[in-house]
Structures are given as structure tokens and as C-alpha cells.
């Protein structure tokens, strides 16, 4: 199989390659995560129980209040952050948090990114070029 490329808006952070963890749910660091253990903890979330540490996390939209902006930095400083975060639609809070944490972050894909990428796919995220390469 050959590589596939999905295009998006130019993002934040530097290129990174990792293994995807995907769901069609939304994302808030405050409401969805056990940030100490590095796992999804909200029972209603499809990824509940899954570790997001070091994964390329792919979800639908950003939700929740302003606290997430601080939390991405705090998670990264303990080595307990995802490798990258890809959303169909961001809000200012998530972008501001990614900018502070220098976490690779992209949104506004040409297609539903939660359908284009599957859990376990090896992907290269390039926020500078605005592309995600799914390795075949």
C-alpha cells in the first residue's frame, strides 16, 4: 500500500510521526482526561480507558472552558502529552494552549479527519505544510 496525504489548514508546532488514536468524539483536557495517569477517564467518551501519551490524537471539535489552555503545557512538562492533536474544528483556547506548549496541532481538514485516519495508523503530522501523511 502507498502513503495517503490529507490536507488541512496550516497548524502549530513542528512535524512529528506517531501512531494514531482516533474517535469521532469532542475533546476537553479538563473534562475528558485523567491527566495524572495519562488516560481518557470520562465514562461517556469512546476512548475511556485508553492512554493518549505519545499518540497522535484525532478527535472532532474542541469543547469546554478556558482551563485547557494551561493544561496542555502542564501535561507536556511531565512527558504525559499526546505527540500531536488533530481536530476537525479548533477553538481559540485549544490553539492558544498548543502555542504555549509547542504541541503539534492542526484543524480544518479537507475531509472528516476522524474518518480518514484509523486507530493504529502510522502518521506523519506536518503543521508547517498543512498535511498529514498516513503511511501504508
Amino acid at each position: 500500500m502507498s502513503d495517503r496525504i490529507v490536507r488541512a489548514h496550516v497548524g502549530i508546532g513542528s512535524p512529528v510521526t506517531g501512531t494514531a488514536l482516533v474517535a469521532s468524539d469532542d475533546f476537553s483536557a479538563r473534562y475528558d482526561l485523567d491527566r495524572v495517569e495519562g488516560v481518557f477517564s470520562r465514562p461517556a467518551h469512546k476512548l475511556c480507558g485508553e492512554s493518549y501519551v505519545g499518540r497522535v490524537l484525532v478527535l472532532n471539535t474542541a469543547k469546554g472552558g478556558v482551563a485547557t489552555a494551561w493544561m496542555l503545557y502542564e501535561m507536556k512538562s511531565r512527558g504525559m502529552a499526546p505527540a500531536a492533536l488533530l481536530l476537525n474544528a479548533a477553538n481559540p483556547i485549544m490553539a492558544q494552549g498548543a502555542a504555549m506548549a509547542d504541541l503539534p496541532f492542526m484543524d480544518r481538514f479537507e475531509t472528516d479527519v476522524t474518518a480518514a485516519i484509523k486507530t493504529g495508523d502510522k502518521v506523519t503530522v506536518d503543521p508547517v505544510a498543512g498535511t498529514v501523511t498516513i503511511h501504508g
Partner: peptide, 8 residues
Amino acid sequence: SNFEGGPS
């Protein structure tokens, strides 16, 4: 104003 999270 936009929502400006703490760092922002």
C-alpha cells in the same frame, strides 16, 4: 474579545 485562555 475572543476567549483568551490564561497563557494567551
